[in-house]
Nucleic acid binder design. Sequence first.
DNA 1: TTGTATGCGTTATCAA
DNA 2: TTGATAACGCATACAA
Lengths: 342, 342
Amino acid sequence: MSGYTIKDIAKECGVGVSTVSRALNNHPDINKETKKRIMEVVEARKFSPSTTARDLKRIRSNTIAVLVKGLDNPLFHKMMDIFQLEIESKKYDFVFQRVGAKDDEISVALDMIKERKLKGIIFLGGNFTHSEEQLETISVPFVLATISPGKNVNTDIYSSVSVDDVKESYKITDYLCSIGHKRIAILLPDNGDESVGSLRLEGYKQALSKHGITVEEQLIRYSVDEGDSFSMENGYKLMRQLLSEDIYFTGVFAASDKIAVGAMKALLEAGKKIPEDVSVCGFDGLDIARYYHPTITTIVQPIDDMAGRVITQLFSLIEETEANSQITFEGKLLVGESTGPV
Amino acid sequence: MSGYTIKDIAKECGVGVSTVSRALNNHPDINKETKKRIMEVVEARKFSPSTTARDLKRIRSNTIAVLVKGLDNPLFHKMMDIFQLEIESKKYDFVFQRVGAKDDEISVALDMIKERKLKGIIFLGGNFTHSEEQLETISVPFVLATISPGKNVNTDIYSSVSVDDVKESYKITDYLCSIGHKRIAILLPDNGDESVGSLRLEGYKQALSKHGITVEEQLIRYSVDEGDSFSMENGYKLMRQLLSEDIYFTGVFAASDKIAVGAMKALLEAGKKIPEDVSVCGFDGLDIARYYHPTITTIVQPIDDMAGRVITQLFSLIEETEANSQITFEGKLLVGESTGPV
DNA sequence: TTGTATGCGTTATCAA
DNA sequence: TTGATAACGCATACAA
């Protein structure tokens, strides 16, 4: 862990610094013998070049950044493991950047592109409500993971890998309807126009409409709290409120498993039986859905496959073998113990 | 978002680059007027100096790094929010680095110190089983958060903020004993000698011994899986195994809330009643402990206070107003619905 | 108080 | 295939 520089190595090997640089970067124009000799010294001295200096000089680095918004989403942890593994196995550098809930991921990205001369970016999570102009300022290949911008954005200028939130919400709401539920509350993280929440609301409405059920505003609930709006706490509060208002409902669609957990706790506390009195379902397919008691009916997002596809897509873009595309994965309806016929 | 450099700004202002640099860094030897003029241009052009170039040049940066091991621990998320907030409010730069489960946090730290000329480091999580020699290689102030090295390490050379795992485990095991449990299983993440798991085991043993209960090896269970050993899945598997062996027990101490959740699911699935047949408790005080059904008896770690103290301590070290110290917080026994008298 | 010049460690350019 | 040298963008010693 050293103050060694490329200069020291050059001196020790009796060659010029540029030759060492060439050896380090697998440059073609170098004698195999000298390269070997240099690399031996590099190993011996445990020398590793300063990425800081590299980034300063290089036109383009070998670094791929993952910008994640909403670290507390367990879905993302597994995906990040896969990202890191895949990226490093392809001999790229991996850097991970947290984006605060209030921060703008695009300006963070722009900053990093400039600083680190990024080769590619993965945006993981966030409400990607950016305009075309903003997206176009990103000058390197990027893939949006688990998210997708509004439908009015030109599909040529971005890549994304996600489930179709509208469709999957439709699927699970449809399931509730199909087992006889007519009065279904929906618990949403926020009332943003372009958030995942709004997409899931849309699917919910479509399903109700298909079954000839009128959408009732009083059954649509938004978290009002600051902070993590997908939290159990929010689910709990929303359900308490709902119960206190004495509104009749037999089913609940929570926009995430965590919200579902909080809601179920409120129901159970209130002496309701799940699913006999109220059926509840969530969204995401987190571990907790399988380990809660009762297990939670949910939409499982195929995150392993999605993560893999994100990587494939990003490298296709980098290697220019493929153009931008939007990839949609199918979620799986996992029926648990939390739902049943009316 | 720019290719602007300090040079461009200098030219535009009709001053030298060093004057701009002085303005940017709040250097004292500068005319207020010129500084103001420069800063206006800086604002107007949205210029921000390249940290890459800065890091290369500077002896010491203004950056504090948080190295996190075990991102999937929800405790850490809240702490990280606090870290970021506090660090940035003190006008330091904040950088967040993920450390893989198999990676050595010290070498990661050493790397970053060299590259980023770090001013301080916070180590969050991990099994800090490092020797004095290793700790001493860290040349900048650092604080270990939620962890503490082995007792045989000289306390002068490191700072830490954590709960006393032995004591807290003792506390909760003692509670189980005090309500009549004599046959208490313990579910541990791993059998590492210096891990938190081993500390929690130690507290468990001490409590049993105080109550005159013999420690039985067959009631001590270690996760064997790769990956996240604190997972619900591990808890589930351990409990299934335990149940299949037909060993008699009335209490379970899981070394984390997540393990407890998995274990409880296995118990409930097997038709056991909690707490009538088996009492279960966890450790950490995660949200899920309050929202599981039944709620889980656990040790709540005062993470907000701990996070704040970590920051205070780190800045004391940086400003050299205080020497290294080990700070221990008291956990709170939160009795839930998952435990009861035999 | 300000500007000029040098160097941080590396890669890129060019000539050898 | 190599080596000297000029950048990269900035901070700083030194000169003005």
